[in-house]
């Protein structure tokens, strides 16, 4: 069991059966009152953040949570197969867990996978990926104002909105958190 002196960023604890990680904490003590640690926890399954005051002397249950660096290998039906490069162990993870970013994943992409009780519960992609445009209509001449965009298909099959000057064969930088085009990358 953990007590308040163990609280630090990244500590994984179990509350009401859910795994949480500490994202922020502060020691608070009124002059003549009881000390506590004002702590913000992020639910590792839902991402929801909750604040709780942990009194000195209160105990926190450790969560069986493990974070592993894994490489994306290939897609199989609706699932994605990852490999731990330290022991070559392979894990199949549902695309639902990854969310919208799953169609931005190219072979060999390094990811971080969080396991709770040995089950994968979260996959973190690199913030940016670099992908080649495989299909896109040429931009309409004359329409060069500010933020006009057009759809483009990239090598993984994902559709991303890009500025009009982007052509087939360009490599573009995409933010995996927002699924949005960031910039063209000169080769």
């Amino acid at each position: 069991m953990y007590d308040t002196s163990d609280i630090r960023k990244g500590l994984k604890v179990l509350m009401d059966g859910n795994p949480y990680t500490v994202v922020e904490f502060q020691f608070v003590k009124p002059g003549k009152g009881a000390a506590f640690t004002r702590t913000k926890f992020k639910n590792l399954l839902t991402g929801a953040v909750v604040e709780r005051n942990i009194r000195s002397g209160e105990k926190l249950e450790p969560a069986n949570v493990e974070t592993r660096d894994m490489q994306f290998l290939y897609k199989e039906a609706g699932d994605l197969v990852f490999m731990d490069q330290t022991n070559y162990e392979q894990v199949t993870i549902s695309a639902d867990l990854i969310g919208a970013a799953h169609d931005l994943m190219k072979d060999n992409l390094p990811c971080t996978v969080v396991f709770f009780n040995e089950r994968p519960v979260d996959v973190t992609l690199p913030t940016f990926v670099f992908l080649e445009v495989t299909a896109s209509e040429p931009g309409v001449r004359g329409d060069t104002s500010g933020n006009v965009q057009k759809p483009a298909t990239v090598e993984t099959g994902a559709s991303v909105n890009v500025p009009l000057f982007i052509r087939v064969g360009d490599t573009i930088k995409i933010d995996t958190r927002t699924h949005e085009y960031v910039e063209r990358v000169n080769k």
Partner: peptide, 8 residues
């Protein structure tokens, strides 16, 4: 004992 924070 055990007091450590921005003001402790």
């Amino acid at each position: 004992a055990g007091e450590h924070g921005p003001h402790h």
